[in-house]
């Protein structure tokens, strides 16, 4: 499959049922166009990535998708249903879970309590199964033995895994990850990548925002590239990173390294 540079399409049609759809999503702050006319449809069961240098608008896009940020224009749809005017508190109830750019764990609570937090509101009707959900999340993220510890005892990589465990404990249909490997070394990065692949093998649709190119190529099934708020390329990861527009965004016109 060859890479395509995308033109803005309103009401686009896909040959699959996109789990998450953005239609001309735009977020403007005063004079700044943080996100400008993004249209995409995530393929179910795949790990999709959004690649872009700092300031390209990736996190703002995530904010729009999780409704923490107001849309200036456009719509977001989840499983075909428009949820553009819903508040941030309702998003997890739809089945969308996220991790944050900075680690946000409750410092005085154990790992177990931090993980179960995501089920408190959403899994109200399944209290007897919640413990299973949490145990399963702990197992899948390799956190056995850490349940009783507080975040301050954990290494950064482990804290990140707790965040991911928390996100998946609520049995989401879509997992959003905001730069989960920021500040990690190559090994830790690979571990997280492997974890995401294993989640994908279970059928979880994921959207990964990162700016580490190698990790994205290894982990993602489909890649979108952003710069200055717009999509500049999309397609198979190996193809996208070879696109001249993408290389320019990362390396600058004269080969200077951005990210």
């Amino acid at each position: 499959m060859s890479a395509q540079t995308t033109a803005s399409v309103a009401g686009s049609s896909y040959d699959y049922e996109p789990t998450l759809e953005c239609r001309d999503v735009s977020v403007y702050y005063g004079g700044i166009k943080a996100v400008d006319g993004i249209t995409l449809g995530l393929r179910p069961g795949e790990v999709s990535g959004i690649l872009g240098p700092n300031g390209s608008g990736k996190s703002t896009l995530l904010g729009a998708v999780t409704r923490m940020v107001k849309l200036t224009r456009g719509q977001v749809l989840f499983q075909g249903k428009n949820y553009s005017s819903v508040g941030p508190g309702k998003v997890i109830g739809l089945g969308i879970s996220r991790t944050f750019q900075t680690v946000r764990l409750l410092p005085d609570r154990s790992v177990y309590d931090n993980i179960i937090l995501s089920t408190d509101v959403v899994c109200r009707g399944e209290r007897d199964q919640v413990e299973d959900f949490v145990r399963s999340a702990i197992a899948r993220t390799g956190l056995e033995g850490y349940e009783g510890l507080r975040p301050s005892e954990l290494s950064y990589g482990v804290q990140r895994r707790v965040e991911i465990a928390r996100a998946i404990a609520a049995q989401p249909k879509l997992l959003l990850l905001d730069e989960p490997t920021a500040g990690m070394n190559k090994n830790e990065r690979a571990e997280i990548g492997a974890l995401l692949r294993s989640l994908q093998a279970e059928g979880l649709t994921q959207l990964l925002v990162e700016h580490d190119v190698a990790m994205m190529v290894d982990t993602c099934d489909y890649l979108y590239a952003m710069n200055f708020g717009s999509l500049i390329a999309e397609g198979a990861p190996e193809d996208v990173v070879r696109e001249p527009a993408v290389q320019e965004a990362y390396l600058g016109k004269h080969g200077r390294h951005h990210a």
């Binding site: 999780t66 923490m68 508040g87 941030p88 508190g89 309702k90 998003v91 997890i92 109830g93 996220r98 944050f100 946000r104 409750l106 410092p107 005085d108 609570r109 309590d113 179960i116 937090l117 995501s118 408190d120 509101v121 959403v122």
Partner: peptide
Amino acid sequence: RRFDAIREDPQLASAMGI
């Protein structure tokens, strides 16, 4: 847990559906 989340990190609490 909800009280703690609301106190420590209201944005996180909101993301958890609170």
